[in-house]
Amino acid sequence: MKEEASFEIEPGRRLDESLLRSLYALLVEASVSRGAARLGIQQPALSRHLKALRQLTGDELLVRVGNRMVLTQRGESLVAPTRRILADLSLFTREDFEFSPDTARNNFRIAAGDFLPRRFYEEMIRRVRTAAPDSVIDLRSLGHRFDHYKQLGEGEIDVAITIWPDPPAHLRSVRLFADEFVCVVSKDHPLAKTGLTLEAYCRAPHLSSLEQLPGQGTVLDALIAGIGVSVHTAMRTQYLGLVPPILANSDLIFSTGRRFAQQIAADHPLVVLPFPAPIKPIQYVLTWHERTHKNRALRWFRGEITAAAKAITDR
């Protein structure tokens, strides 16, 4: 019978910021060598930290399976709290109190969808790059199942832009701009010639984005349900870059905001049609966590995002 591992904690050693950063690197990379490269330290130094962490946690954290290392169950459970603790520690840095964009080297992490108008991204990136040339913009997808709300709480992202109008109560938010719903079809679509009625809209096959939660639909699904309408969704995709060629070569209808619709119709053989019934507009919402609300760097970044949204709506 295999004996359980015995751990002896190094006298006087406590879990400090250095060990926390080493722990996170080890958990994320699942490798001592890659973890050391991530931290910019020598591999033997991280090996010593791993030994200390195993002593402090009473768990192996990383174990070898075949020719690779994998996290133990305890190791997996420590990823999120370690990320959150490190994110909270970053709020105490001197940089937060003396933020100056022209000298800052921040990594601004934003989750958003490609349903936003291209001009918004162009304006936001131009503003941030002009004012803070040494900082980095980390733009990532929203994911599914509202993962971005969890990521905000755990410090994995700084802000998110969504089209769900009511974020959870523990998050802060501001509305960036509204956009009316329209429909997009191929220029050869019969409805491009006859016009779009509500009856024709309900009969037609539709192209849609993926549901955030299975069975609960998208924002559009919720809005059209509010006016007593349901449609047949023939295809769903998370790749909105595929929407224009799919529409141009099919009989599908795509419902989206006017700005995004006009953008893709300008580049492809598509036609923008008015939505065939009164419906609430899309609301683009900037969301962040209370824990970063007073962070000066992130407050500045949020200001640039709202300014970019205002710039495209003022044109």
Results as ranks from 00 to 15, higher is better:
Gln212Arg: 06
Asp221Arg: 03
Ile282Gln: 15
Ser186Leu: 08
Leu210Cys: 09
Gln216Asn: 09
Gly215Gln: 04
Ala265Glu: 04
Phe181Tyr: 11
Ala266Pro: 07
Val271Ser: 11
Gly215Phe: 01
Thr218Val: 02
Pro269Ile: 13
Val229Gln: 08
Ala277Asn: 01
Gln238Met: 12
Lys280Asn: 15
Glu199Ile: 04
Pro167Phe: 05
Val243Glu: 08
Gly226Cys: 08
Ser209His: 10
Ala261His: 00
Ala204His: 03
Ile224Gln: 10
Tyr284Arg: 13
Ala261Ser: 08
Leu298Gln: 08
Asn295Thr: 02
Pro274Asp: 11
Val229Lys: 07
Ala225Arg: 04
Gly195Met: 09
Gly257Ala: 06
Ala178Leu: 14
Thr256Cys: 12
Leu176Phe: 15
Cys183Met: 05
Gly217Asn: 00
Arg291Asn: 14
Leu191Lys: 00
Ala169Leu: 15
Val285Asn: 12
Leu242Met: 14
Arg258Ser: 11
Ala178Lys: 01
Gly195Pro: 14
Ile227Asn: 11
Pro281Ser: 01
Leu198Thr: 01
His206Ile: 12
Tyr239Val: 14
Leu220Gly: 03
Leu207Phe: 08
Val184Thr: 05
Ile279Pro: 08
Ile279Thr: 06
Val229Phe: 09
Leu207Thr: 05
Arg172Gly: 08
Val243Lys: 12
Thr287Arg: 03
Lys187Arg: 12
Phe177Arg: 02
Pro214Asp: 07
Leu252Ala: 00
Ala277Lys: 03
Phe260Gly: 04
Arg172Ser: 09
Asp267Lys: 15
Asn249Met: 04
Ile224Cys: 07
Ile246Lys: 02
Ile282Phe: 15
Leu286Ile: 10
